[in-house]
Design a protein around this nucleic acid. Structure first.
Lengths: 172, 172
DNA sequence: TATTGTTATACTCTATAACTATA
DNA sequence: TATAGTTATAGAGTATAACAATA
């Protein structure tokens, strides 16, 4: 009885501890990257993610496609695109075949700028994760895969509607 | 030559992939918890974290101590405390020995409410992490420990000043 | 002077809802 | 009607800076 209870209690504690550490790690890494993006490129993660989507689609993306990929509402995409267009990194081109839509594309300046940022960004990530060896990275990647799959399923069947969260799947 | 390059390239890709999956997992879990806290208790993570700090300190905490522990500025603590005090969960008591300061404490209603939330919160976390067995949780916890230590060191010596990020170390 | 806390203001990222132009 | 995108507004969470009261 006592053993069972304490085992359960330990597992509870274990899940909570793991979650808090996971959150703490992610927050720290994200903070470093956010700060460096701002300090060195005067940009934000949301803008970086939008550029990353466009970099993979030379023919351009509609606003609605960006909205889906970034998992944010259309209004937000409008705002981010406005900023990036004002900076000359992005252009709303006419969409062939649908006069309601745009084909949002990187400008050549935007492409150069994104590539510069992506290179440095990758170096930061490598540096930040250099505490782990290749096998450890593989191991964590696999564990997170299991977690992600389960959490996605839980979120999908949850009573509360799924909320939009950033995708950040850019360079994946 | 080719081998070396491709190995490096793979490791680069590996770190980036790992980071994106880590971010994706954390964002999803955090989203679920945030939505449920809002749907079931009409509260936020920041308020929950503040209550968690107070729950561990029956004698109360100064605003400045809350600011340090939550790693946010004093102005934010003022705002959160205002909200929680308006909800009757928290009280600014006179601080014995320093008339500039308060001893912020849970009210008995706040304590009951926090315990209710903390119980359910823990159940959510256990559910969300149930895809991993005890050994897997231990393994991930250890890996994240290495990562955290390294990232903290990197952040500390980074050129850009460390920015405030939520602590969320409450029930740890 | 230095510290504690508040107020005022602003920025980023996000959301919803009402609207326009086109399909 | 339905869809693509914009505008207007709001809210959470965060920051900085100027200020009052006290140490």
């Amino acid at each position: 009885m006592r053993d069972l209870e304490s085992r359960v209690s330990d597992e509870h504690h274990q899940a909570l501890k793991l979650w808090l550490r996971l959150l703490s790690c992610t927050t720290r890494v994200e903070g470093v990257i956010r700060n460096r993006l701002r300090a060195q490129f005067e940009t934000s993660l949301a803008r970086f993610d939008l550029l990353a989507q466009l970099e993979r689609e030379p023919q351009g993306l509609r606003m609605s496609e960006l909205s889906q990929r970034l998992m944010v509402t259309g209004a937000n995409v409008t705002g981010l695109t406005d900023q990036l267009e004002a900076e000359g990194l992005v252009r709303r081109a006419a969409h062939p075949g649908d006069r309601r839509a745009f084909a949002v594309r990187l400008t050549s300046r935007g492409r150069r700028q994104f590539r510069r940022m992506a290179t440095v960004h990758e170096e930061w990530v490598i540096e930040l994760f250099s505490a782990l060896g290749a096998k450890q990275k593989d191991s964590m990647y696999a564990l997170l895969g299991d977690l992600k799959q389960h959490v996605t399923a839980v979120d999908g069947r949850a009573p509360s509607r799924r909320k939009a969260n950033r995708a950040k799947e850019h360079a994946a």
